[in-house]
Design a protein around this nucleic acid. Sequence first.
DNA 1: TTGATATATCTAGACTATCTATGTATCCTA
DNA 2: TAGGATACATAGATAGTCTAGATATATCAA
Lengths: 113, 113
Amino acid sequence: MALAKGLVAASATPLILSILSHRDSYGYAIIEEVRKLSDGELQWADGMLYPILHRLEDRQQIESYWGASENGRKRKYYRLRKSGLKELDEQRNNWNKLHAMLMNLKGGKACFN
Amino acid sequence: MALAKGLVAASATPLILSILSHRDSYGYAIIEEVRKLSDGELQWADGMLYPILHRLEDRQQIESYWGASENGRKRKYYRLRKSGLKELDEQRNNWNKLHAMLMNLKGGKACFN
DNA sequence: TTGATATATCTAGACTATCTATGTATCCTA
DNA sequence: TAGGATACATAGATAGTCTAGATATATCAA
């Protein structure tokens, strides 16, 4: 069962911010981390991640700097900024509220057609 | 603080399906119920709800029938169908997974700029 | 040295789906 | 009879993802 598009989209931003709240990271590594964290259920394409990173940078919620791996390949690292942490807190808050609403509505009738 | 758009969007469908899993309802009442359930935080415009209902009906996850209120005003009621219940279960499942991921990632460094 | 795979980033444009704005109509109350 | 609540509908703007295509370097094996 594939995860619903809308939900994947809605979780992308808070997931990225969460990961960056632990340590600075870069695009390729973020995709790997998300894949592992989700047991392979979230397989982000790079082309979907980068625009989000760019948007978050435009909004000044994260900032970037160039770094390099051991073998010299360059990487663009991202660091969470204060306003990004605020955004993360809010989004997590919202997730909690909506999650609670949805789960509280659990149960119901058993007869369908 | 307004709820993020993407999240509101992603929660709309499962919320509607959840409400209909308890009892048949119609557009106007669903908006009211959502407003109450969310303590006023989710104020859906009718123009956003109806297209979703129509889409769910197109997908055969819900079905509609005309009814009337006590005073004779007509209402279009919606009933959850089997495939809609299945969809609801899946979406709730997805919500749980992503919610768990997000919350497990909680915590992190404390220094920002 | 050549080809394959992994690492690494980027953007244009298609696509999906909400959401705003607007229109219609009825009932109730003052 | 005017205003507010109830009730449904759709066209089009808008936003934001996601696909597809592009570029480039490092490593390893044949």
